[in-house]
Design a protein around this nucleic acid. Sequence first.
DNA 1: GAGGTGAGATGATTCGTTTCAGCAGGCCAC
DNA 2: GTGGCCTGCTGAAACGAATCATCTCACCTC
Lengths: 334, 334
Amino acid sequence: MVSVRDVAIAAGVSVGTVSNVLNRPDRVAAATVERVNAAIADLGFVRNDAARQLRAGRSRSIGLIVLDVGNPFFTDVARGAERRAEEDGFSILLGNSDESSSREGGYLDLFEEQRVHGVLISPVADVLPRLRKTRDRGIPVVLVDRQAPDRSFSSVAVDDVAGGRAAVEHLIEIGRKRIAFVGGPESIRQVSDRLSGARIAASERAGVALEYVPTSSLTVRAGVEAATELVARGPASRPDAVLAANDLVSIGVLQAASLAGMSLPDDLAIIGYDDIDFAATATVPLTSMRQPATLIGHTAVDLLLGEAQHGEGFEPKQIVYQPELVVRQSTSGR
Amino acid sequence: MVSVRDVAIAAGVSVGTVSNVLNRPDRVAAATVERVNAAIADLGFVRNDAARQLRAGRSRSIGLIVLDVGNPFFTDVARGAERRAEEDGFSILLGNSDESSSREGGYLDLFEEQRVHGVLISPVADVLPRLRKTRDRGIPVVLVDRQAPDRSFSSVAVDDVAGGRAAVEHLIEIGRKRIAFVGGPESIRQVSDRLSGARIAASERAGVALEYVPTSSLTVRAGVEAATELVARGPASRPDAVLAANDLVSIGVLQAASLAGMSLPDDLAIIGYDDIDFAATATVPLTSMRQPATLIGHTAVDLLLGEAQHGEGFEPKQIVYQPELVVRQSTSGR
DNA sequence: GAGGTGAGATGATTCGTTTCAGCAGGCCAC
DNA sequence: GTGGCCTGCTGAAACGAATCATCTCACCTC
């Protein structure tokens, strides 16, 4: 492996000069810059990032921990974050917790060891104490798609209570009375917030019943399982509408309901959440609550870099976007 | 920031002993281990990965560059890779080239600077010379979903020629004569291989015409655009079947065709490629060529770690899986 | 020609970890 | 009592880049 030292020897200068060529070429005479660059190309020199980081004290990476890489919502968040990070010469390390606390913890450990510039996280459950430790070690943390109850962390979120509420209000408007909320686990804030929004909307209207149908995760498979149980009930006790905690679950519900021969949305109206690209292309195009995924990622990195610059005593900021109802066939029947 | 040195002082031992507690606790007396661990917990010591790496000469990460993180096929590959890497204590750095050579190059630079343990890449176009350099620097490279024409690299791929061929044979079997292959750019090997497989199948049957409809990328949007142009033609010159280069494109085609009021699969049969989860849940469930995505990622890491251990003179291995036709409504009409 | 200036280059030092030759002291065998 | 051999621990030497106080020297001014 060739190091700055080798380059320095080859170019007939000192290591300090090579370093200057690399980092502040304006301080070096043009002829020297050229000579050093020639030596670099010649020897195939590649900077050792570990050495830079060791010296600098921290890395130029930002850790991002998401609940599920298989969910397009999160890949969109990641894409937004990456684009913003790129602007400032940072890169994103993507970690996938798969809704598991232990995997989440593993990534936090990893990111701390890497002396990451900051951490963006869509937390599984209550890792707030852990995150406080991380921040105490000097690593800024920004919550994604979730707010800290005590406002002690910066966050970029969408108003999930309002979203759950708007979704159920829409279902009520189209005449539905027996509504099921499908999703879980409740420990995920997105789930519990959307559920409580749904409950508020339902309680405001007489004659509307809201049932909570828990699932163990937010996947297509979980949606299929929950819906299979639902449609197996008699038509009388069966709900006439489903609000799913996210689009993956709603696609599962839709799949199971069609398979059981139900007519959509007549027998069952379905609303999803996130408005991923595939919602519009589903068997019956899905009504969904749209969230500005790319923007969320972008803003989160913004906040993080701001916090990283200001250092201590930075006032956490909470950003909340509003979701938007996108009506399609699964609730409008064309 | 607390270092091994601080821990050593706190525990009343030397730095060497702290390091041994961290890495080979069996060589240290039990009482000492305990004392050191207490000091670590007490001070909140976190290893500095940069320093470890600098010493070790390379990192415990593996770089993975994919063409599109938004494509579930690649997130499945990533998941498989991650699972396998985890087993040996490695982590995956995920880079998204978005089919852009310059972004791809950027990630390669980054990974080289990080002295990554190895690189898994689904290449955009002809980066082979560049990859050779990377390997010459001592970083093993494994191609994913693509073979090196000269077998100079290890690779894990799926037989795309066979896949394209099988797909078109299926279309011919169900009586289609005017087949369009939609996808691009051709510089992506997956596209050109699937296309040439398709051409072989078409040429073997008299009276079957195959048309190539290029797109600029492999996305839903690109599929919509291409299909919009196709359906605008008169029914006589319009194809009666489409093979899309991947599922995202096929979903776009399907969307545009339905919107234009075409009856599927009667007016237009559609086959996708990859069999992502969303293929089965599309407006009209999509026939698709299934690829073992998770297995591909798993195997790629396997090969990589093997190559990394053997060092020089490692004989590259080419692994080729066979795709599998999954017939659904978009070609069977229920 | 003395004194001053500043661009350009230098090289010792630093970051935190791992490694490894070597040391202390206890124990056993002869 | 000496030599040999453990076990457990030590401390200095790397790893590669960045920093910064310091030096050199060409050039300018009076």
